[in-house]
Amino acid sequence: MSLLERVVHIDQTKAWYGEIPIQSRYTVGIAGERFFREIKDNGRLWGTRCPHCDLIYVPPRLYCERCFAHLEEWVEVPTTGRVHTFTVVHLDLDGNPLPEPRIVAFIQIDGTDGGLVHDLGEVDPEDVCIGMCVEAVFKDPAERRGSITDIRYFRPVR
């Protein structure tokens, strides 16, 4: 039999099942350490400013990606922003329906050049619109661990 002939018996083919046994531990980094400490300890958002490019980065960065300057000017930024874009997610990672649809948005933080990807809450999907003003809802201080999930979600500013 030529090896290039098509497979006619299913037992000539076989899949081998396995996995790659790793997990990752990501430090939040030099800029991230201060950003997430502020979220955890004070429920506040901070950014870094590049004086040369006149940009405020949120999340804050150690360096300006445009001019490569070391960013050392920290500025407190509002916990409010606007919905730049959003999507309504109905399926989980395996394609199964979610019990409740989840609204995921990119939120531009007011007065900055950056923003956060996060959930929207306390709002129905059909009421969300681009440009909507939203504010961060933080978890109780005791529940915070220095993570982006210390923000429970963003909700419409009433």
């Binding site: 990501y26 430090t27 939040v28 980094g29 030099i30 800029a31 991230g32 350490e33 150690l62 360096y63 445009r66 001019c67 490569f68 070391h70």
Partner: peptide
């Protein structure tokens, strides 16, 4: 074990290399 994120490490090295020959990213 670095505290820096991967991209922060990259920037540290890249900015030092530019500094060494007095060039900028431009």
């Amino acid at each position: 074990r670095a505290q820096e994120t991967s991209k922060e490490l990259a920037w540290e090295a890249a900015s030092k290399a530019l500094e060494s020959c007095e060039l900028t990213l431009d």
